[in-house]
Design a protein around this nucleic acid. Sequence first.
RNA 1: GCCGGCGUGGCGGAAUUGGCAGACGCGCUGGACUCAAAAUCCAGUGAUCGCAAGAUCGUGUGGGUUCGAGCCCCUCCGCCGGCACCA
Length: 850
Amino acid sequence: MDERRKPYPFDQFEPKWQAIWEERQLFHAPNPGEKGFDDAKPKFYVLDMFPYPSGAGLHVGHPEGYTATDIIARYKRMRGFNVLHPMGWDAFGLPAEQYAIKSGQHPAITTRENIASFKNQLKRIGFSYDWQREINTTDPRYYKWTQWIFLEIYNSWFNSATNKAEPISTYSGKNPDEVRLAYVADVPVNWCQELGTVLANEEVVDGKSEVGGFPVVRRPMRQWMLRITAYAERLLNELDKLDWPEGIKLLQLNWIGRSEGALIKFQISNFESQIIEVFTTRPDTLYGATYMVIAPEHSLIDLIVSEEQWPAVREYREKTARKSDLERAETAKEKTGVFTGAYAVNPANGERIPIWIADYVLLGYGTGAIMGVPAHDERDLEFAKKFDLPIVVVVQPPGDEPAVGFTGEGVAVNSPVINGLTSTDAKKKIAAWLEERSLGKGAVNYKLRDWLFSRQRYWGEPFPIVWEDGSHRSLGESELPVVPPPLEDYKPTGTGEPPLSKAKDWIRYSEKATRETNVMPQWAGSCWYYLRFCDPHDDRRFVGEQAERYWMGGERPGGVDLYVGGTEHAVLHLLYARFWQKVLFDLGYVSKPEPFQRLVNQGIILGEDNQKMSKSRGNIVNPDDVIDQYGADAFRCYEMFMGPLEQMKPWSMRGVEGVSRFLARVWRLFMTENQSGDWVLSEKIKEVDPDKAQQKLTHATTKKVTEDIESFSFNTAISQMMIFVNAFTGAETIPLTSMRAFLVLLSPFAPHIASELWEKLSAKFTDARGDITEQPWPTHDERLLVEDEVEVVLQINGKVRDRMKMSILATDEQMKTAALSSPKIHERVAGKTVRNVIVVPKKLVNIVVD
RNA sequence: GCCGGCGUGGCGGAAUUGGCAGACGCGCUGGACUCAAAAUCCAGUGAUCGCAAGAUCGUGUGGGUUCGAGCCCCUCCGCCGGCACCA
């Protein structure tokens, strides 16, 4: 006997079924108008976050979400839906390029290899993707349309009157370049020397690059920006209608960071025409503004600084500029700043207040200037104490809290216009008062910044833009795709000059015009891939209209019915994609304002040691090894059996073994070994009616598995199937109908074994036709689940003292009487006063005694 | 500091949302099969006390609401994630 014999022959039938699925193209979803399309079925679009094909290969975290969506996809097909379940590759980006630089191989080659091995790994798990729809963001046939969408954004502006994007041709102002949704700006950006590129705010974590963890510094550079801030309000409001985890919505909400307040104009003393505007959420504290602070980078500084203060101001500005974001955050505890020598006039009381510069005021938020109200703002108080600035109380706290340092709501004092009003009323009144005098107005401010969209790298989509005489213009659609030039040396230059600038011939577009040399960030391709999946081969449009309307259609605001992926993209991809979708929606190219209706996050899978999987810890689990040993079905089922999908949980090889044993028990329920050691269908399986208990269990299992799939409780669905199998193991006769139903229930989880056993059954019995994937989903009969009798718990003062079988038809009174007749209860109640008896029908009787 | 999530046996986790805590799996113990082992099958397995019937305790901590709390409310502790001078 072979000692390494598999508990069941998955190594034989798993590859067999994968080949059959591929050969028959069973999971191909035809588009409307195509052969085989069934108009009568409703659509269901179930999407995974497509992977970045890294050199490290797939780890066990990827297939967690993929298995969940595969179960849903297979389930929905059996429930009669046209299911779109595609997969592709998000292959542009920094790691491929970093790796390419290290290995000396062109990123296109490593990317191709990585994709091949990722695809192999995914196929081994038996996912039911429609591989005819495979896309790759680095394919010119794909990024042609990424560039095309960029041009649509470039050629649009946000009309605040209509609250939507419109073609730039409808803009009547002088300079359209000032309002385009894609624009060039000279702004302080996140520069990462190590990566040789700038990064978006979302890509910087704790002052370091999200990729690689390298230091990031602020540095002014000319960059392409996308005007995502124009959509701040809509991105915020339209979150409401999405079926997303509340936590993710909250992350976006906080990232967008809406705050309501007022813009207030301060006149600068001795500069009659100059004003500085500040944003504040507490206009009711205006009378307490005893100084003003502007950001060190503020453009008005040059104008207003007094001669004697110049050296100090210059020194402070230089010192601030040298600091990285990380350093700036680290030194945040201690307030620093310098007096400018200039004064502003408080519009409420006409007082002259000093203007300072300090790095605790940020250029990018609000107007880059604040009014300092030390009595009612922690930071201002700290600053005022350090530099000995006056502190004036203007809010009286409720109760006996000290007024200085009180930042809550109270009653306005020392503020003639609003004295005696609550903070809420005072805010309204002072805003109106300021507005009447043209000194200010109510305003809403957002934390969200425009999206820094250019990268000084090689492995990304080139911009379809050329420059001539210092201004930019778009290429025509016929000139797309703009393919990057072949480069020997695609390393970053280190100066901020993009690598593409080395391709001198390529840059030269015409006699006078040169090409843009920046490339787009990694996120560009993933901003719209879910649209391309609807119609991946169209070379005339980014997505065919009919296909888009069908797959992205429906009643609800979002097109994709289910999207599963990790939380790490909460304020990156998931925000960017929403933004692009809205622009395309405004321009009339897509039918929905939101891309993803329902979002589910899978939790992180930890190593066996309960630590995050990492190379250095040596706790990484490779799916290939697991599949070699236990098979794809066991791998899939274990991924789902571990625990709730959304929860973080550790891997356990013992656990895989347990699930593998379950599948082996399923196998032996159907199959026995004959004398020559071959597996043959068990003689116990017969075309007989199940007994009452078997029938009930079959229906209960159908109900539980169905409900659990619908609620993503895959772990408990598997438990129920285990209970089912345990109950049938050892039965004398095994009714065929129960087994048929069970295999269908099992098939989304363990499609290979279910297919194989289904085929074995069909070889002997003629009661069913076709492949298991073509079977309808079983239904249950609620009437068969109803018990005649239930075990009722008898409690005294809430403690279980006895149990008793009672008819489900028993009235409250009958239950009460029966309970009191129990000897155990009777004994304990004897001699005591019964104060109350609580009866819960079919469940319990609780007797309350003294 | 602020916001959010989570704390249940030796371990992963169940619990119809206020009604038998610990389903299912892992591990462990015992048994069957075997010359033996593996595999498989059967039984047991929260803790404490008890020969036993049984009793008491038990869902991070302390309190509260309730006939009844893992679930609701308040306090504190711990872990995870996010934001972080946002005016």
